[in-house]
């Protein structure tokens, strides 16, 4: 049975707990967002970037934080996509028996 609900992921005929599904998407995304933020801002000082683009002045802490959440959102989107496409295909319903066959 597939209800189309996000927690209805089936693997080898088993359902996994919802907390596992959510953790499996959000948590690795958090870790990778942390790595991405660290690498990105190692090479780019947000203060210099913002100076060049002439954007509104934004402190480094704010830029780091926003950058982190941008990366996190991106990674969550990727992970959620993977989880969604991993759902097994819905087998076609067998055709309904005709009424005359029933009688």
């Amino acid at each position: 049975m597939t209800t189309g609900r996000p927690d209805d992921v089936q693997g080898a005929g088993e359902r996994i707990p919802r907390v596992q599904l959510v953790s499996a998407v959000v948590w690795p995304a958090f870790v990778m967002a942390g790595v991405a933020t660290a690498v990105f801002f190692t090479f780019l000082d947000p203060v210099h970037v913002l100076e060049c683009t002439g954007e509104a002045p934004l402190g480094r802490t704010a830029a780091y934080s926003l950058g982190f959440f941008m990366f996190w959102a991106l990674c969550i989107a990727t992970g959620a996509g993977t989880a969604y496409f991993l759902r097994p295909e819905v087998p076609p319903r067998p055709p309904r028996p005709r009424t005359e066959e029933l009688s």
Partner: peptide, 9 residues
Amino acid sequence: VEKSLYARR
């Protein structure tokens, strides 16, 4: 519970 949609902790 396992028979329902997901296992509760």
